[in-house]
Structures are given as C-alpha cells and as structure tokens.
C-alpha cells in the first residue's frame, strides 16, 4: 500500500465556505476528483495539512449549454463532458479530449476543474519518495537543480492536461473566485492566461483561489477536434497533443486556433501557424508548410517517455492530420 500522508479533511457545502477555509489555512489544498492530487500525495510530493473537498459544492456542478455558449462547472466529471450530446455536437474537441484522459474509469472520477488545474509532470518528479531520494531531488521538490536540464534555472515539467488545449482552442474563459477576508470576489480571464511557462509556479491562481468553471463562446459554425499521442491506447498521459478550432467561410479558414499540449510547462498557442492559416484556402501544400511551423516555439526536454524530437514530430503530424480532417 502507499498510504496517504495524514491531513485533515474539510468537507464544505458551499463555495463561500470552501473559499473561506482555503483563505484561512495556508496549508490547505483543494481536492476535486483526487485522481491527480491523491496520487502525488501518496508519492509524498505534497503534504497539505488540510484538504478542502470540493465534491459538496453545488456551485461547481453546473452544466449549462445554450445557443449563446456554455458554462461548465469545475466539478463536472470528465465522463459527463465526454458523453454529453450537445458538447459532442458543438464542441467536439472538448468531447474528444475528455474521452482520452487516462481511462474511462478515471473519467468517472476526474473533474474538469482538476484537469484544468492539473499539476505539471516530469519523470524526475512523479516518483516515490524512495526513488527521488535515490536519484536525487530536483527543483520542483526538495532539490536545487533541474535534473532534466541541469544548466537551466527553471523547471520544465510538462503540462499534460488533455482538455485544456481543446478549451483554449474553443476560446474558453476561466471563472475564478477567492475570499478576500470579507466577501467572495469573482473574476473571469481568458483560459490561456491561467498558465505560466514554469513547471513549478504553473498556474496563475491567487492563494486560496478556486476555479468555479469554464465559459465557452457560442459554437456557431465552429469545427474542432483533438488528437493525442501516447504510447498506449488508454491510461497514458499525452506525450504530445493538438487541438484545433476554426470556421470555414467561402472555402477559407477563419478564426483558426491551434493549441499544442504536453510539449511545454503550459499549453502552447501555435501563433505562426495560425497566422498562416487565417483566411487561407486549405491545400495540402499549405498544410505542409504550416506543419513546419508547429511547435517552433517549444523545446521539450527529456523528461517524459519518448524523445523530445519525436514528441514534436508527433505534434506536427497530428496537426496536419487534424487540419486535413477539419477542412475536408
């Protein structure tokens, strides 16, 4: 057995109560489905004094889809998102992404919020205490060097969420809330602004701040999709992934968004590729040229299974295939 370290479990019944608890106890962490956090805790990566369990929060359970857009509560399960017909119809990239997270049984547990706030991953970090002690600790936990890139001063742990590239491609905004000591303060930001290119300080949440949900714009005419590369057909995290959303108007591509996952410490918007595609007519030659630009700005290090070069290559191939599929 890998026993969990001791903690006090708080089970608030409202968002306010949860935010107050998180505000009051600096050593508390929010717990959603637990499929990321509890694994890390069993490995001794986090030892919070308290866990604030979000399962009782009705505010996080909302799932609203209407012609103007959608609001997906942070507490909604991935399997619900995967199986929802309206999401599949209007936001297929999200549906596809939710359906390839881990395994079906984990999708019954993991939440959208947990997937959006997922920790970054690295081969030197996601290991037991025994292993890390034997190998030597690293920057992200207990150590003072990065073992994947010893000359660098930062952490390159990889942001491996499947739904986030899809959500960003679809134009999602994150709704956040925190307790300022007197009242609940809400704010909404474009989802991509939630992430930092830093494996340690991966997420731009204030202390005690929670993701309440994700808002998606109307899906009129949007085509979207998600492709993920992993070693096995299930269970595995992505080694590279691509989400694309766009409209087709008069044979040309509009509002094109291409977002790459699992190649850096944050999701990567492939802006050069997007510029080239915007307004253009799809053709095999164009797509081939675009593919060259994919991942131009990412330089993954060797901290996952598979070589960095191959992971980039996979992102290119998958981007091309996805674009071909969506423009067909």
């Amino acid at each position: 057995m890998m026993p969990l370290p001791r903690f006090k479990l708080e089970r608030p019944q409202s968002l306010t109560e949860a935010l107050q608890l998180l505000g009051e106890f600096p050593d508390a962490l929010p717990l959603a489905g637990g499929t990321d956090l509890l694994v890390s805790m069993k490995q001794g990566l986090y030892t919070p004094g308290r866990l604030v369990d979000l399962k009782g929060l009705k505010e996080l359970a909302t799932l609203e889809i209407n012609p103007e857009g959608a609001f997906l509560g942070a507490g909604v399960k991935l399997s619900t998102i995967r199986d929802n017909c309206l999401i599949r119809e209007r936001y297929p990239a999200l549906s596809e992404a939710a359906g390839v997270v881990a395994s079906p049984n984990i999708q019954n547990m993991g939440t959208l919020g947990g997937n959006v706030c997922l920790d970054t991953r690295c081969w030197y970090f996601n290991q037991s205490e025994f292993w890390r002690n034997s190998k030597g600790y690293c920057l992200k936990k207990d150590g003072d060097i990065c073992r994947a890139a010893p000359s660098a001063k930062r952490c390159f742990a990889v942001f491996s969420s499947d739904t986030v590239p899809a959500l960003i491609a679809l134009g999602a905004r994150a709704e956040l809330a925190w307790w300022d000591g007197e009242s609940t303060i809400h704010r909404e930001i474009p989802l991509e602004e939630l992430y930092r290119e830093d494996g340690i300080h991966r997420i731009a949440l204030k202390r005690g701040e929670l993701l309440v949900g994700v808002r998606l714009p109307a899906a009129h005419g949007i085509r979207s999709g998600y492709l993920k590369y992993r070693k096995r057909g299930a269970i595995d995290y992505p080694l590279a992934s691509v989400a694309v959303a766009m409209r087709m108007k008069d044979g040309t591509m509009r509002d094109v968004r291409v977002v790459l996952g699992a190649l850096a410490s944050s999701p990567v918007t492939a802006s050069e590729a997007m510029e080239l595609l915007e307004g253009a007519q799809p053709s095999p030659e164009l797509l081939a040229r675009v593919t060259e630009l994919i991942g131009k700005r990412t330089s993954p290090v060797k901290n996952q299974a598979g070589s960095p070069a191959h992971r980039k290559q996979m992102a290119r191939v998958y981007a091309q295939r996805l674009l071909t599929r969506l423009t067909a």
Binding site: K231, D236, A305
Partner: peptide, 26 residues
C-alpha cells in the same frame, strides 16, 4: 512497448504500471 530499463544511477526508469507499458485492451 515494454522496456524494463534502469537509469544511470541504478533507479528504475519506469517503476509503475503507468510508465511500464503493459498492453491495454486497445
């Protein structure tokens, strides 16, 4: 898929059923 590899310090490269890839149904 499978490689029971040992790193240069003697640690297992993939000491879990997540990183050691035994085939799934798919």
């Amino acid at each position: 898929l499978e490689n029971h590899d040992i790193t240069d310090g003697g640690q297992h490269a993939c000491p879990s059923l997540l990183e050691y890839k035994i085939p799934t149904m798919l």
